[in-house]
Design a binder for these strands. Structure first.
Lengths: 199, 199
DNA sequence: TTTACATACGGTTTTTGTTCGGTATAATAG
DNA sequence: CTATTATACCGAACAAAAACCGTATGTAAA
């Protein structure tokens, strides 16, 4: 399995995400638009390179016929690990340069991972040391587990409830009290949880 | 499984939803109306294209006879899912044809995934509906979470402890009692947990 | 025999992939 | 050092497939 260049991996990931989200492959023009190419030839070049490296395949002159090869289909994504997130008493998120691989079907636009610190979500089965996969959104639904920036000060992982008086951020642990605030910025919602057992 | 175009996927989705809601397939006219086609030929073209791609099938000259093919009926993920596993009162593991994708670093030789049923491991943050990634091993260490076949009868997910009198399979939920047995075959140990949030 | 349906043929328009002939840059082999 | 190759991009023209149209015909069942 030949290694891909950085750009080729970006193109491949874009295609994979697009297929995942839409159920069909992107057109060359859509790929060009996404990457800011002014020429379709650039897309064609990359597609050809990826075909040479057996990362994908398509049919001649058939619209939206790109398919990932099985070897690459089964691969996971590397998403940025943005830092640790407090699930107990709120602490500042820590930036890191690590990445973590997640299942392809958890991947979408604006997805990243956070490592959980604390035990405030343990009744939802999110434990200290787990990784949560986050999708950046601003408008969560009631009951979503969200990453919230409170008072422009600290970041925390809680269940989200919109109420008359403001926002209630509810821990899933009876030992903690909810946070009631009007000043919370939602940074994303939890799409998945990943736990690793190391022996 | 040939990829569909955008339009073809829209048509297929419409048919699938229609069948789901009504119990029978839409007529060509209903499809045309829904998409604003002025010609039935357009519908016929799409039906033919979808038949060519084996996304659906119908009987010649039979009204509302469109049927989705099994492959498109249920969309699959990346990696095989071997069955469901009881984490509550032990029940037989159920074989399925589903698949699931898992992070690369959880993957190894003899690795598969199981869907968790029951709540006996909830104190370990393994909840009903979660997927556990299992590595086939026969000799676990004390404290490992294992998949065990007990008395050649049922399969269950428990914490493993070797004791003088035999094997203790310990649930992580105070409402359940441990299983004490000499007759347990370990099928593997848990390498990871994956949870999906669907909204 | 009417109604509701599917199918067929010969078109046009829009979307999409393909190709040719380029530029620029960086890494690599001779 | 130079020649070569791989990568990454451009602009424009082109050709095929996909999507759609109107109209006509055929089938099955009430």
């Amino acid at each position: 399995m030949q290694p891909l260049t950085k750009r080729q991996k970006e193109i491949l990931d874009f295609i994979a995400i697009y297929v995942n989200e839409n159920g069909y492959a992107p057109s060359y023009r859509e790929i060009a638009e996404h990457f800011g190419f002014s020429s379709l030839a650039s897309v064609a070049d990359h597609i050809q390179a990826l075909k040479d490296k057996e990362a994908l395949d398509n049919e001649f002159n058939v619209a939206r016929s790109i398919q990932l090869t099985p070897q690459f289909e089964e691969q996971t994504f590397d998403v940025p690990l943005m830092g640790a997130i407090a699930a107990g008493s709120p602490i500042q998120a820590i930036r890191t340069r690590e990445t973590i691989s997640i299942p392809r079907d958890m991947m979408g636009k604006n997805t990243f991972a956070l490592k959980v610190r604390g035990d405030s979500m343990e009744d939802e089965g999110i434990l200290d040391g787990d990784y949560v996969v986050i999708e950046k959104i601003e408008k969560p639904k009631n009951g979503d587990i969200v990453v919230a920036l409170v008072d422009n000060d600290y970041v925390t992982l809680k269940k989200y409830f919109r109420e008359k008086t403001g926002i209630r951020l509810q821990p899933a642990n009876s030992r903690y009290r909810p946070i009631l605030t009007k000043n919370a910025t939602i940074q994303g919602k939890v799409k998945g949880v990943i736990r690793r057992f190391s022996y």
